[in-house]
Design a protein around this nucleic acid. Structure first.
Lengths: 154, 154
DNA sequence: CTCATATAATTTGTGCGCGATTTAATCGTT
DNA sequence: AACGATTAAATCGCGCACAAATTATATGAG
């Protein structure tokens, strides 16, 4: 018949499609690209937006606290925060009680940005077109994966 | 009583924890960090590894084809491929039939790397500790989200 | 055949992300 | 008080990611 010889039992052709990590990797880029035009309009990059979300929830945090929430190192945050400072959205001042720490605080412009960004989550929700329950389920699954990976690092 | 005035009905304190995008964002970093020591051992970065996976599955692809599979632009791929070429894992040659295209092909060293990387997926699977069915389900969910986002870009 | 258009890859500039190192302040022990 | 250890940020170097512009080749309409 027309059937070719069967492929090797130990299928060697594992494509990217079989990698969960690639799904996450490319979904991350897709979020970035989806947010870009929305954030361009208010002068933020995607990582900057996440920092602002953290500050809108809790103003006046140290670099370390922000790093713990965002899972980012100070070597990533310091320059990013400097750019947000240059943009006029926050101030960075050494804590007089512990000069090692830098306290990050929203400016009025930074606080005002919150309302300009108010519509963004709805845009995303809209694009995803998923119920809240589905969303929460997937989010929990992804967070569980993240935390497994972090806890098993070499 | 001891109760404070109830919080505003429209809860303004949406934290990062409620953002699906942050789950994906931080999971992406977690994968990167988990892979790092494994890939350091064979001289690859994480994006380079994904490119090699694509080439192990299908050798001899153009930059454009790789870009379509990885969802990456040539301006990202060109320098990355040059680094892999410098590492001796692949060659980049203009297609004589269409000089606009560059064909990317594995060297013997690049092909040999496949066996050295064979154990990596099992490491990840192991760390995740999920059944194949769970894994496939989550992967499908994430891919669906990715594709929704890409199809609704501005 | 010619010239406008389209396509593939490269280059350039900016901003992440992180390992490794450095600087400066604080803490702990003596 | 003194000094080694710890901690918080910042700095440096490298690689990714992508928009925008550039270069070079191919295609197609007249």
């Amino acid at each position: 018949m027309g059937s070719r010889p069967s492929p090797p039992a130990n299928e060697d052709k594992l494509s990217l499609d079989s990698f969960l990590c690639f799904a996450i990797y490319s979904a991350e880029h897709a979020f970035n690209q989806f947010y870009r035009p929305l954030l361009d309009a208010i002068g933020l990059t995607y990582p900057q937006y996440l920092v602002m979300v953290a500050l809108w929830a809790d103003n006046d945090q140290t670099v370390k606290e922000l790093g713990q929430k965002l899972l980012l190192d100070s070597s990533t945050l310091t320059p990013l925060l400097k750019r947000l400072e240059t943009s006029g959205y926050l101030t960075r001042t050494r804590d007089p009680d512990d000069e090692r720490q830098v306290r990050v605080r929203l400016t009025p412009a930074g606080r005002a940005l919150k309302s300009r960004a108010r519509g963004i989550p709805a845009c995303v929700q809209d694009a995803l077109g998923l119920s809240n329950d589905e969303l929460k389920k997937i989010q929990a699954d992804v967070l569980a994966i993240r935390d497994r990976l972090l806890s098993r690092r070499a």
